[in-house]
């Protein structure tokens, strides 16, 4: 069940050019959030109506008494959010959406994570949870360039060594993350893939996983107004029982079974 919370910002810092990590205290239902779920944050000043809508941000990592959100400044809302300082209160609604399914996996399961750019944060949180149940995931992370790298430090602290690729070759492999991921899949023995990133990347990951018959869950993103499932702004086409229908990314997602998503013309 989601709730509305006024949270006092513990820490707010730039972690890469244009990327910020926002640390907030755990409260109420938020402490039960699962990887892939998100929090929607009111970024406007009190008594102001601009920017009007909340911004949905996925949970990046958690600790006993705190959790953090990682976001990139892309427009007015996130620019305004980046100006909040430690000690200020932030109006948050969450946890929202359906997160990744992973509790069905056995310890030692062969799991691969594929993250693209600002799609990395929920996969860092997922890694935390997987490690807790005895699963050491293999991580593939792709970025536009070395400047845009986020989450690598958190993964390394957790003892993981992500395979990195950048579009311009400034760090790790040169090219898309899907290329190195494809090579890994070809080697076999992958039980499940979790992916988050831009839609074209997810479509490619889904196609590859499908080709090798590997279970795949994708966390998707669409423009949202309400974030709780009533406005029908953030829908995406899914296939169910031979028919296509709109599913709400904010409520039935953001995590979907990759086989159900209609990738061509589905948005």
């Amino acid at each position: 069940m989601p709730g509305q919370y006024q949270l006092e910002i513990i820490d707010h810092r730039q972690v890469a050019p244009g990327h910020f990590e926002l640390t907030l205290p755990q409260q109420g239902e938020l402490a039960r959030a699962e990887p892939g779920q998100f929090v929607s944050v009111l970024v406007r000043a009190p008594e102001s109506f601009d920017p009007l809508l909340r911004r949905p941000l996925s949970i990046y990592r958690t600790a006993e008494d705190r959790f953090s959100l990682l976001y990139r400044v892309v427009g007015r809302g996130t620019r305004r959010l980046s100006q909040f300082r430690a000690g200020e209160a932030l109006d948050c609604v969450g946890p929202l959406g359906r997160g990744f399914t992973y509790r069905d996996l056995s310890p030692g399961a062969k799991v691969v994570l594929v993250g693209g750019g600002v799609g990395v944060p929920p996969l860092v949180f997922l890694s935390q949870k997987l490690l807790q149940i005895g699963i050491v995931p293999e991580v593939f992370a792709g970025y536009a360039s070395s400047e845009h790298v986020v989450g690598l430090g958190a993964w390394r602290e957790a003892g993981l060594e992500p395979v990195v690729s950048t579009d311009d070759g400034s760090l790790g492999y040169r090219g898309y993350v899907t290329q190195v991921f494809a090579e890994r899949l070809a080697q076999g023995s992958v039980e499940r893939v979790y992916a988050c990133g831009p839609r074209p990347m997810l479509a490619e990951v889904a196609a590859l996983a499908g080709r090798y018959g590997v279970d795949c869950q994708v966390a998707m993103e669409e423009w949202m107004a309400c974030g709780i499932g009533v406005c029908l702004s953030c829908v995406t086409k899914v296939q169910e029982g031979g028919a296509n229908r709109w599913a709400r990314v904010c409520r039935e997602g953001p995590v979907f079974d990759a086989r159900k998503v209609v990738w061509q013309g589905g948005s």
Partner: peptide, 15 residues
């Protein structure tokens, strides 16, 4: 899609 866009103190919808 897109079905919505934020505007000054408001939003447009075409659900």
């Amino acid at each position: 899609l897109p079905r919505i866009v934020e505007t000054p103190a408001g939003m447009l919808n075409a659900i």
